[in-house]
Nucleic acid binder design. Structure first.
Lengths: 134, 134
DNA sequence: TGATTTCCTACCATTATGGTAGTAAAATAT
DNA sequence: ATATTTTACTACCATAATGGTAGGAAATCA
């Protein structure tokens, strides 16, 4: 039950860009890489997870980089993690339509559901703006 | 951010034994294996995670098996998961004494801490008895 | 033109997951 | 006594996920 570096570094990128949102400038991954001491190549790979989103405006070449396409308050943390980590249900059977029929296996399903709701409810109510305000 | 089968099947064993607690009989892993359709060998392996606990009374041989050493209400779910999954902190830096000094990495630490507390608080208040009552 | 940076595809080492197999030792049933 | 049952313990292994690295093409800017 761990958040991987994929999720953590992905959020680091988002926070970095959120903090620079007001400046309007493009921030390169190289800058984030050096500031946060995370390999550039790995950051590039993590960005691939956001490929099908409209999260960023990007520009290649010198003085290029990324900036947020929207205000930090438009970025929901639950959405961000779903892009980064895929399905974030803590047990796989939660999103299967058909309940399993094992005797005691699904007694605990209620427990998983509760915990899952706890996390999802929390993340759903938080945005990037909430994070950088603290 | 997934609970593995190790954690899930381990809980299944605990629930099974909790339900048989009043009978006082020994329940074999073979019985649980057949009832829950989980391989016997895998259940044996999962039991190794509880090796250093006083959770069970065991008996070998025919009519042998396991039974809970204490009443189901004495078994805290947080404790059980710590035995099964090891440290259940969702990010590793939470239990390091020294905070990391990276610029934005630890902005999110507050977030991880919050989620971690959410889960731990929930699990700490629940016992095996709560689970089998529902 | 040269440097910079995104964008994209491969590749790879290590670890965790999710098991299986085999055997010894203890306890019980016959 | 012996056969059976069951825990207890060790070793092994296939697959997937994690956490990266490497290389190059394409776009952009100074």
């Amino acid at each position: 039950m761990r958040i991987s570096t994929k999720g953590r570094y992905g959020l680091v990128i988002m926070i970095y860009l959120a903090r620079e949102y007001n400046t309007g400038r493009f921030v390169s991954l190289k800058e984030i890489s050096e500031s946060e001491e995370i390999s550039l190549k790995y950051l590039e790979k993590i960005m691939l997870n956001f490929k099908d989103t409209d999260y960023f405006i990007s520009s290649r070449g010198s003085e290029g980089g990324y900036k947020l396409a929207h205000s930090p308050k438009e970025y929901n943390l639950k959405d961000i993690f779903e892009k980064l980590e895929g399905n974030i249900e803590i047990v796989s059977c939660l999103n299967e339509g058909v309940p399993c029929l094992k005797k005691n296996r699904c007694v605990s399903r209620i427990l998983w559901k509760d915990i899952n709701n706890l996390i999802n409810d929390y993340l759903s109510t938080k945005t990037l703006e909430d994070l950088i305000k603290r």
